[in-house]
Nucleic acid binder design. Structure first.
Lengths: 199, 199
DNA sequence: AGGACATCGAACCGATCGGTACCATCGAGG
DNA sequence: CCTCGATGGTACCGATCGGTTCGATGTCCT
């Protein structure tokens, strides 16, 4: 039956539902691991509805990645802000949040990086680059407030730790990865303020 | 024509040729970015030949990943060995080698990690985990010789830097990534020998 | 009341997928 | 010389892919 009796017709809500399901399924199964038919089935909508809202599978992928980037960036920003004024505390809070994410059942690495790796061409790589820019903005602020000699360099090193930790936690077991990355980040932060010690 | 005139029939060499081409093409285009027909065309063989040698596309993927893991592990081991007896020099040499790789045209991140991310199920993830085990073996030896309090923890932190650097160099631009990761690794190495410096 | 909009379900499209079968043709080894 | 294994080329298979279209049916807004 085309439209169930009693349902409230709400295009915006339909769109959100598709986006919600697609975010989950595309992450679990991979961009090429599920077809449009499967997506529609999981979302409980018809193909025509999906295409009316997103134009193409690529458009849907783009929308999910953009939404996820926004969500993750806000999440880390708030985690840092909630940790008080100390740069080291903020950095620790970021990696605590990440470590909690790694330990979640169903963690499969960073969805945005995964998407970019799966589709070499297309919007995913652009989204991933901008996503890392956002991380760098947050991290270089912390690095600068910590008195790092080169805040941008330190931020980039910590970004490497963040992305690497996600990969290692996903593919080599989560045990300790988040905590170890956290300690490494804090070590780099300390060393940046007081450079040459030995050697 | 079934068999070109003048070619020397050599199954082992045919297999090597397929493996060589597949290693390159699967890395460039992604596991799902090229079909068996395309692989055969690039390798200059027929489908029957490919299937006789590898049984399935999955079997070909497995063979390419295994060969690549062997090659990379040997490459890094030799880079470290060629750097002399000093642990810090060996670690620096590893990251120098990696930095050179990142800068190569056509660098697209670690092929083994990429494969594991693209196919959540299957042999790729197992191969990736064993690949990281090999890295850890090399790194923890260096860490132990450097006098690290916890060599395995330090090795894992450096592994995180290695994997993260590949991701960042691939998706966020290669400029400086290798060098920054190298400095971060050396900083961690120094800090591990002389832990508490500031609070 | 009535028209615009939203939706489902299904049929349909051409293309491509991984994989198999068959055959003509060649080199290699007895 | 003559068989046998390796190979290229081609056709073929069923399944699935992303995407389009159409009609029936319902809600929503005027």
């Amino acid at each position: 039956m085309p439209v169930d009796k009693g349902v409230t017709l709400d295009p915006a809500r339909t769109r959100e539902q598709i986006l919600l399901v697609a975010t989950e399924v595309l992450y679990e199964e991979g961009l090429d691991g599920v077809g449009v038919v499967g997506l529609c089935a999981r979302a409980g909508v018809s193909k025509e509805t999906l295409y009316r809202h997103f134009g193409s599978k690529e458009g849907l992928v783009r929308a999910t990645l953009q939404a996820r980037s926004d969500r993750v960036a806000r999440w880390l920003r708030e985690a840092a802000a909630a940790a008080g004024p100390e740069p080291a505390d903020q950095l620790g809070a970021i990696f605590d949040a990440l470590a909690g994410w790694y330990a979640e059942p169903g963690f499969r690495g960073c969805a945005i990086v995964n998407a970019a790796v799966q589709h070499h061409e297309g919007a995913a790589r652009e989204t991933a680059a901008r996503h890392m820019d956002r991380h760098l903005e947050l991290l270089s602020g912390i690095a600068a407030r910590a008195g790092a000699a080169e805040p941008d360099v330190l931020a980039r090193q910590i970004l490497v730790l963040m992305e690497g930790a996600a990969v290692v936690a996903d593919l080599h077991g989560v045990a300790g990865t988040g905590r170890q990355a956290r300690e490494a980040a804090l070590t780099l932060l300390r060393a940046s303020a007081a450079p040459a010690s030995g050697g």
